[in-house]
Design a protein around this nucleic acid. Structure first.
Lengths: 142, 142
DNA sequence: TCTAAATTTAGAATAATTATAATGTATGGA
DNA sequence: TCCATACATTATAATTATTCTAAATTTAGA
């Protein structure tokens, strides 16, 4: 968090109250919020906050390595302030997302013809399944 | 392809010219088309085709295991008629998608606390990087 | 051929996100 | 401390992908 603010200043980005509020909201947030989640929460304290600011800030944060954009949910983007490489699990029913801090980098090998085609920068694994709550709610035998 | 049509009939689904055209478009298609790709192509022969029909058909196909929905591209959904489990590479610049037919199921292990939280149904690996064309276009040293 | 139920269609509606242009403000230097 | 200005924020409109609706059409089986 502190280092994100420091980074912000270093890059000549301005620290506005809205940005600070968004940074604080994201700091240590493991809930994988959407732009809408962030907007709604901060709007309470900054009633003039607009979506454009939320999206702008997320964009800048993304560009400066402050957050990860998660595409596991096809409905909307989620954001993760934890930028150490990790993976995710999504519940196909309620769309809740969990973090997976396992290092698969050694085992995710690609055949040569593909590494020739694309210079691979990284990989992330999307696990999907039904969470406990949804199993219960749907009456799945456990 | 043939078996999809057979499946369709078995499930009491009707074979309309539009559906057949969409099935044929998808059959063996390794280009990971979007709904828009499909719509534009088939519209030429069926000028009254509507997006609703494309989305409806994709939905039914998905439900009956005829296609996979790919979420690797945060901009739009892509569809893959190859439903054998496999993975993808996306070029972060041009968004072209390649198939990865490697079996990682044995190596993608999860810690126990997560398998208790979610009953895992599967996993999908998204590789990302810069493809050869885009490296060249952007003047990346190779 | 007839009919019921499924499907298609045009068009409107929704939701997420981005663009625009005017207004406001953080920040470094006088 | 004050100012200028470049950067940010805002309201609003626009865009894009997708879904919904209700009416018209078509399929497939009797």
């Amino acid at each position: 968090m502190e280092n994100i603010i420091t980074k912000y200043k270093e890059k000549g980005l301005r620290l506005t109250p809205q940005r600070i509020a968004i940074l604080k909201y994201l700091d240590g947030n493991t809930g994988h919020p959407t732009a809408d989640n962030i907007y709604r929460d901060i709007k309470r304290r900054y009633p003039t906050l607009s979506f454009a600011t939320v999206y702008n800030t997320l964009q800048t944060l993304k560009e400066h390595g402050g957050i990860m954009e998660i595409t596991i949910d096809s409905m909307r983007k989620h954001y993760d302030p934890n930028t150490t490489p990790h993976h995710h699990i999504i519940c196909v029913d309620c769309n809740e997302i969990w973090d997976v801090f396992e290092d698969y980098s050694k085992v995710l090998r690609l055949p040569p013809h593909l590494t020739r085609e694309v210079r691979i920068a990284g990989a992330h694994v999307d696990f999907y399944g039904l969470c406990r709550k949804c199993q219960k709610r749907k009456g799945v035998k456990m």
